[in-house]
Simulated scan of single mutants.
Amino acid sequence: MTTPPTDRGTAVPQTGRSPIGVVIATRNRSASLAVALRHLLALPERPEILVADNASTDDTRAMVRRDFPRVRVLALPFNRGALARTHGTRALRTPYVAFSDDDSWWAPGALSTAVRLFEAHPRLGLIAARTLVGPAAEPDPLNDVLAASPLGPAGDLPGTQVLGFLACASVVRRSAYLDAGGFHRVLFFGGEETLLAYDLAARGWGVTHCPGVVAHHHPAPVPRADRPAVQRRNAVLTAWLRRPLPYALARTRDLAAEARRDGQARRALRETLARLPAALRDRRALPPHVERAARLLDGATA
């Protein structure tokens, strides 16, 4: 089993500044971003907030600089997808980083709770929060899935061990996130969380669901049309990046069979094959204990 890591490279914030910051990856959604920023700026923790803008062509950058002078803008020259969070995390330099999207924010006190958990548990690398959805604050169904994880608790970690989470409702130890490499460039966006959870666990960091840390998510009422194809693509690419070859081949065969009758699956298969050479170049099998945990979760969701 991988030796538990130490907290390598943690930047110490200046006296009086919050030890936790928020990174928001966004592109061309200035109106919803403004709503999220108003909620985040009202938090009692007063976190430093950084918007990593994925080359927006609307008024996102001008709006943030004009209306939210406390918020930093990292203006990326082109759309980096989920990697915008990594650029933001490198720039922010607080010991702990909470991720929000331009349609999500954190409940008052949630970030303070996260800091206490990280400081009490040195191996903890990522917290998967409890997510409340929409104006009615309905529990996201993912909450129950995470709480029922068959991986169970660990003696040196809070909550329940998981290998999945919702990116916009997660908090990371900055050093752990960078140690694991952050979100992977091959996946871009959509279902990118599982691979990061694998990579954190492979490096010895704990990934847990802690329901006392609460995030609010207000997604658009109509989901993006391409999301099912992107999520299928990234599930198969994740298999090629980290799982045993027979498993990756089986997932690819399943997708090819679906593609005969389903347009979204056909798109997912085309995009998988286009990205497969890059995935194979970055292929790195999971350590045996993490592969066993992944198989246990595969059985729980079958």
Rank of each mutant, 00 (worst) to 15 (best):
Val171Phe: 06
Ala215Ile: 02
Ala176Glu: 07
Ala176Met: 07
Ala136Gly: 08
Asp156Tyr: 08
Cys168Lys: 12
Phe188Lys: 05
Ala137Cys: 01
Arg227Met: 08
Glu119Val: 03
Ala137Pro: 00
Pro221Gln: 11
Leu200Gln: 07
Ala128Met: 07
Gly212Met: 03
Ala202Phe: 10
Val222Gln: 15
Gly182Thr: 03
Ser175Asp: 15
Phe183Lys: 04
Val172Pro: 05
Ala239Cys: 13
Ala239Ile: 03
Gly125Asp: 10
Val145Leu: 15
Thr238Arg: 04
Ala154Glu: 15
Ala129Gln: 01
Ser149Glu: 08
Pro122Asp: 09
Arg173Phe: 09
Gly191Pro: 01
Ala137Gln: 02
Gln231Gly: 00
Ala128Val: 05
Leu200Phe: 05
Leu237Asp: 07
Val207Lys: 00
Pro150Gln: 10
Gly152Glu: 12
Pro158Met: 14
Phe118Ile: 05
His209Trp: 06
Asp179Cys: 09
Gly206Val: 05
Ala154Ile: 02
Arg227Gln: 11
Pro153Ser: 15
Thr160Asp: 03
Pro219Cys: 13
Val230Ser: 08
Gln231Ile: 08
Glu192Trp: 00
Gly155Ala: 14
Glu193Cys: 07
Gly182Val: 01
Asp199Gln: 12
His218Asp: 14
Ala107Tyr: 07
Leu241Ala: 00
Pro158Val: 14
Phe165Val: 07
Ala197Arg: 00
Cys168Pro: 13
Arg173Gln: 14
Val115Ser: 04
His209Gln: 02
Arg185Ile: 10
Arg233Asp: 03
Leu126Tyr: 03
Ala167Glu: 10
Gly204Thr: 07
Leu196Gln: 09
Gly159Trp: 07
Leu132Pro: 02
Gly134Val: 06
Leu237Arg: 08
Leu132Tyr: 00
Trp240Gly: 06
Tyr177Asp: 06
Gly206Pro: 02
Gly191Ser: 04
Pro135Ser: 09
Leu124Tyr: 10
Arg123His: 12
Ala180Glu: 05
Leu146Val: 03
Val214Ile: 09
Ala201Pro: 01
Leu163Asp: 00
Arg233Tyr: 06
Leu132Gly: 01
Ala107Gln: 14
Asn143Ala: 03
Ala169Thr: 06
Ala225Trp: 15
Arg123Asp: 13
His209Thr: 04
